[in-house]
Design a protein around this nucleic acid. Structure first.
Length: 479
RNA sequence: GGUCUCGUCGUCUAGCGGUCCAGGACUCCUGGUUCUCAUCCAGGCAAUCGCGGGUUCGAAUCCCGCCGAGAUCACCA
């Protein structure tokens, strides 16, 4: 049987790192088995609906490279893919339950139910609505909630992550199937949809584990074979023991994109948070993830979100892309991250800058602060020279002398290449009998006034002869 | 309160009865790569495997109890 999985978010806002794994794992599983991955929007709660949230969700999935085979935009054979447009389907299935006596219209007012509930919590006893089931119920019509009529028993099932499970009547209840506004609840809708769409593996957060017996009862009453159930443990907030949520400042996945994190790194990090293939491999491409993914290696305890490791992975990926596909490939991702002054320069120049600076990047947004001196003359700040640990013992005239000798030497270089610069610099060391620390620091600082820069010959080569000498000259005249 | 789940370095994890006085990765520290920052390389710190009992010649690994943390008990998903 073809593997079919789905990601079924409700459009209540952005997708953050705490909940995107329930998209990644189903995707990986489906692709691993040459199956289908469906995107379904669960928009039955009109009160929590957020305009534009669906687009946000699609954007996130697309960025990560999780292409859905059926869903909004592209359609498919099991549409519509918005639950709000599937009301007739739910009604049809609900009718089956009514006909078989497994569902009833509930005339009890919410206030009354609240009273029952409060009483229970005072008595410290669990609240089960079936204990208050009305003895005679009206014919169901719109405006009335429809409840499942539970027939509690003992359920045994297997969770692909949590293992063998068992639950008794104490957790089975008359849950609401259709709300009085006519929309189905998640509890009912997802079962119908998964069945209609042929979903073989239901993957969702562990918080649904305790409602599983109720779902099992509905599958049974509907005569459906139940899909394989997969509970995904939570991702924990950096501090405390709670699951990561928006309240802990969980950033949206796409916010990381805007902060210069690569999709590859994000996906790599998230996939390996709570899953590993048993090897010591750390860097995975999407293809490699698909290839090595398996349900039985999903961790069953929660994993803490740690941004440091994400950033490390991002650095690894930045270098990996350059190593394997060249600087140009990385350059394509950097458009929005350059300092403003870079806009007047040509692509070629920016690519050169990138090629000597990329291995210092943790995120692409580091570009804006790390490369400014390649695009605009730095402000001359003699303090930089005075405080440098290699230069502070030199007098001003010594500095000036050294600078002038260097300028003269560099001036004579005809072809301003890295190699020639390297040679000239080496000769300068000998001719002035300076230590590299002294000479190189002086030139490097004079030309950049930045806390750090790439290797000196590289920096000078990229800056070009005119700019390099002009900057050295103006520092010399300043001293 | 009922029910359920989870518990190995600070963090992510390997580990399925002996090769584990516990391995890898991140972080941190030290050293090396003609200056700096980063990369890279070499090395180091770091878990009495939640606790207590058992089973066994032998347990992180099996069993029991306890403790701790989390989830759930909505006309939210």
């Amino acid at each position: 049987m073809e593997t079919v999985t789905r990601f079924a978010p409700s459009p209540t806002g952005y997708i953050h790192i705490g909940n995107v794994r329930s998209a990644i794992y189903p995707f990986l599983l489906a692709k691993k088995n040459d199956g289908k991955f469906i995107l379904r929007i669960e928009d039955t709660d009109r009160a929590r609906y957020v305009d534009g949230a669906t687009e946000l969700i699609e954007d996130t999935l697309e960025w990560l490279g999780l292409k859905w085979d059926e869903g909004p935009i592209i359609g498919g054979n099991h549409g519509p893919y918005f639950q709000s447009e599937r009301k007739d389907i739910y009604l049809k299935w609900a009718q089956k339950l009514i006909d078989s006596g497994r569902a009833y219209a509930d005339p009890t007012s919410p206030e009354q139910i609240d009273k029952y509930r409060k009483q229970c919590s005072e008595d410290k006893t669990p609240f089960l609505y079936r204990h208050y089931r009305p003895s005679d119920t009206p014919v169901w019509k719109p405006g009335l909630p429809l409840r499942f009529k539970s027939e509690p028993t003992i359920y045994k099932w297997h969770d692909e992550v949590m293992g063998d499970m068992e639950a008794g009547p104490e957790v089975q209840d008359d849950i609401i199937l259709i709300k009085k506004d006519g929309f189905p609840t998640y509890n009912f809708a997802h079962i119908v949809d998964d069945a209609e769409m042929g979903v073989t593996h239901v993957m969702r957060g562990v918080e649904y584990l305790s409602s599983t017996p109720n779902y099992l009862a509905i599958y049974e009453a509907l005569g459906l074979t139940r899909p394989k159930l997969v509970s995904l443990p939570h991702i924990l907030a950096p501090t405390g023991n709670k699951k990561l949520g928006k309240r802990d400042g969980a950033k949206s996945v796409t916010e990381y994109r805007d902060d210069g994190v690569l999709a590859e790194a994000m996906l790599n990090y998230l996939a390996c948070l709570g899953w590993n293939d048993g090897t010591e491999k750390e860097i995975y491409t999407l293809e490699e993830l698909i290839k090595s993914f398996s349900l039985d290696r999903i961790q069953n305890s929660g994993a803490r979100y740690d941004e440091t490791k994400l950033l490390w992975l991002n650095g690894q990926w930045i270098r990996k892309i350059v190593d394997e596909r060249g600087v140009e490939a990385l350059y394509l991702r950097t458009r929005t991250f350059w300092p403003e002054s870079a806009s007047t320069y040509e692509d070629n120049y920016r690519i050169k800058v990138l090629s000597i600076i990329y291995d210092r990047l943790k995120t692409l947004s580091d570009l804006s602060t790390m490369t400014t001196y390649f695009f605009e003359d730095p402000r001359i700040d003699l303090d930089y020279l005075a405080k440098n640990k290699y230069l502070k013992n030199l007098s001003e005239s010594e500095l000036e002398q050294l600078l002038k000798t260097s300028i003269a030497k560099l001036q004579r270089i005809e072809e301003w290449s890295e190699d020639n610069l390297q040679n000239a610099l080496n000769e300068l060391l000998q001719e002035t009998s300076s230590k590299p620390a002294v000479l190189f620091s002086l030139i490097r600082i004079s030309v950049s006034f930045a806390p750090f820069s790439p290797a000196l010959p590289l920096t000078l080569a990229v800056l070009g002869k005119n700019t390099s000498l002009a900057r050295l000259n103006s520092v010399a005249s300043f001293i």
